[in-house]
Design a binder for these strands. Structure first.
Lengths: 190, 190
DNA sequence: ACCCCATCTTTCCATTGACAAGATCCGCCC
DNA sequence: GGGCGGATCTTGTCAATGGAAAGATGGGGT
């Protein structure tokens, strides 16, 4: 019906992902409306269905993208810095600079947790944490497992508290220093 | 008003809360349907409106109840046990034994975060953590603040990872020992 | 030139949250 | 003890949503 607008969008899939990201940033993943995303992207309300199947499909695609970005961020941090604590800081910084992605990543009921690409992206990010923890306490792998868990819990929890608004950095300080003050509390050995 | 049996249904408000809890446990807070709750409770689809205003009202009431229960659990743990690490274990145990409450508690977009009773209940639980941390590192309060934050992040994160299904205890061990192995990694001084 | 098919639209339906107005029943006060 | 006020619950209605079905469009391969 809309004359002058090309029938075939250039890259509608990416446009929908970006639009959805904006909507999630505004009202959270739970309140995401497919029709609203379609409206903002200037397409019919059924266009997203073709690319993502349903709402869970769209959110799963966003979550997968998020885990991939997180894995990239952790990789970059590991290459620049030898410290395990800094890896945790990178985790928290990712969460606060990509709040929409992170919100979708930890919305279990809204995402298809058994999606193949999702699981692969999660494992890619998890491997980065494992590698960092291995350097942290050189020793036994069984000990390293709980090191990873403690570190992951710590940074995941801090990220969650920040995004849920339960905690915010003191005026004058930034998220990075707040995260650093917390991650350095983890003792390598118990 | 009406301390006894409020007219037709016994105590509809409590019945709706309990029913909503079941629904949340099954499909998460985001998928909660007011009409479904009303159906299960055997009342008309508009009955919940009178008690909670709207969907956010119902979830806010559940979140408030959850924070109150958490404060109670932390209080009980503090009375029985002097260890700060055990307070963290109690936090994680609360999250895993009341998954529906905990899920609603950390669903920021679905709950009215500025509700007076909600905020009061949150602060009551927070005060319990503060008290425990104060005993942990007797010293300067500015140092204690980051101790609380680190501990809270740790147990909040572990709870989240457990409920999101990203982590589960090894076969043969339970959540408590898993939590203990993690909370004991927190060094009292950095 | 032709046809296949991925892409996008239009139409339709059941469900949902919210509101308005009416019905039902309780406790209270005279 | 009888009506009155108000809390509790129901019925009716509306716009919006997610999803399915079927049609329109045009790009690209043969």
């Amino acid at each position: 019906m809309l004359v002058g607008v090309p029938y075939h969008h250039g890259d509608l899939r990416r446009a929908l992902l970006d639009t959805a990201l904006l909507a999630v940033a505004e009202h959270g993943p739970a309140a995401l409306s497919l029709r609203d995303v379609a409206r903002r992207a200037g397409v019919s309300h059924a266009a997203p269905t073709h690319h993502f199947g349903d709402k869970a499909g769209l959110l799963t695609a966003l979550a997968t993208e998020g885990w991939t970005l997180l894995a990239d961020a952790l990789t970059e941090s590991a290459e620049q810095n030898r410290s395990f604590a800094e890896l945790g800081v990178a985790y928290v910084l990712f969460a606060t600079t990509h709040p929409a992605h992170f919100a979708v990543m930890r919305a279990p009921g809204l995402v298809r947790g058994d999606d193949a690409e999702l699981v692969a992206a999660q494992q890619r990010a998890g491997a980065r944490l494992d590698a960092g923890a291995g350097r942290h306490d050189g020793g036994a792998t069984s000990h390293t497992a709980t090191t990873v868990l403690a570190a992951w819990s710590l940074v995941h929890g801090l990220s969650a508290l920040l995004l849920e608004g339960m905690v915010s950095p003191e005026p004058g300080t930034d998220v990075a220093t707040l995260a650093r003050s917390v991650t350095t509390r983890l003792s390598p050995r118990s």
